[in-house]
Simulated scan of single mutants.
Amino acid sequence: MNRTEFIAEIATTLETTEPLTGDKVLADIPDYDSLAILNLLSLYDGLNVATNPEEISKAETVDDLVAIAGSALSDG
């Protein structure tokens, strides 16, 4: 999965209809809550990225979520 696909998966997980960009503030997304954080955990699990709810909850932007995925994302 590449960065663009990962951001699309984040949008699906957060059930947002607006396109997400890296600088989008997560607090501005209506469905970004504790349940969304738990759902994001499964997205990271699918990439074999070890993380936890605390790390995800510290993320402030979509780019922060991408950074957690790190090298698990392919180029392109």
Rank of each mutant, 00 (worst) to 15 (best):
D64T: 13
T17Y: 01
L47E: 03
V25Y: 08
T61V: 04
I56C: 01
A27C: 11
N52L: 07
Y44N: 00
A11D: 07
I10E: 14
T61P: 04
P30I: 12
N39K: 09
A69V: 05
Y32A: 13
L47N: 11
I37A: 02
T51C: 10
F6D: 00
T4V: 14
T16R: 11
D75T: 06
G22K: 12
K58I: 00
M1V: 15
L65Q: 02
T17F: 01
E55Q: 14
S71K: 09
L41Y: 00
D23T: 13
L65H: 06
A59G: 03
Y32N: 10
T13S: 10
E60A: 11
P30Y: 06
E60W: 08
G46F: 00
E55H: 04
P53V: 12
E55M: 07
I7T: 04
N52G: 15
P53D: 02
A11N: 02
A27T: 05
V62M: 04
S42L: 07
S42H: 09
E9R: 15
T13N: 09
D33C: 14
V62I: 13
P19S: 12
T16Q: 03
L41S: 01
K24G: 06
L26A: 10
L14K: 12
K24W: 12
L26C: 08
K58R: 11
S57G: 00
G46L: 08
A69I: 10
L14F: 15
A67E: 03
D23H: 13
S42A: 12
A50D: 13
A11G: 13
